[in-house]
């Protein structure tokens, strides 16, 4: 028997992109001072002060605002970035799907080329890959939960694909 992963679309939350062209260490320190934790490093994500801060690419993060009004956070981030970077509201640019269950790793090996079964891909890790032609970004929240971000235009097809696969998941090995 398998613990087939369950998944559901998460309600839309504000998304902000922070991108730096200089002063990474200083900006990270300012961020830590404001929100309680430094900007996560490559391939990492953190939750702090009502924010889920997800590394996207060198010098860029996607920040999901879970509590405070987005404009407040956006304004604070603009201050933090200062002359070292820019902040852009990208709300709605990615749909979030929450996958729950022990076998989410198995599910994510279908239709793609990503080593989701690697134990090193642990909570706090993020990675981007392609599943069935769709660019997807994973944010491991716990051993039994991963958040998947996908462009909203792809979301319906991705969920349909996962639904068909999860119905009979092969978890050998």
């Amino acid at each position: 028997m398998t613990d087939a992963p369950r998944f559901q679309a998460a309600p839309a939350q504000p998304l902000i992109r922070l991108e730096l062209w200089s002063g990474l260490a200083e900006t990270s320190a300012r961020f830590a001072a404001a929100f309680g934790a430094a900007l996560p490093g490559a391939g990492q994500a953190i939750t702090t002060s009502g924010l889920r801060v997800i590394w996207r690419e060198p010098g860029a993060w996607m920040i999901r605002v879970e509590t405070d009004p987005a404009q407040t956070i956006l304004d604070r981030l603009v201050e933090i970035a200062g002359a070292d970077g820019a902040v852009t509201d990208i709300s709605g640019a990615a749909a979030r799907c929450v996958l729950v269950g022990t076998d989410w790793r198995v599910l994510l090996t279908h239709g793609g080329v990503f080593d989701a079964e690697n134990p090193a891909f642990a909570p706090g890790c993020v990675a981007g890959t392609v599943i069935e032609h769709m660019a997807v970004r994973f944010d491991v929240i716990a051993e039994t939960r991963v958040d998947a971000y996908v462009a909203p235009s792809y979301a319906a097809d991705l969920f349909a694909y996962w639904t068909s696969v999860a119905g009979n998941l092969d978890v050998r090995g």
Binding site: R17, E19, L20, W21, S22, A60, A83, G85, A86, T88, D89, I90, S91, G92, A93, A94, A151, P152, S153
Partner: peptide
């Protein structure tokens, strides 16, 4: 060397 940030907002803006 340019001080610039690029955000893909294709699906942010409908």
């Amino acid at each position: 060397q340019l001080k610039v940030a690029i955000a893909n907002v294709q699906e942010h803006w409908a």
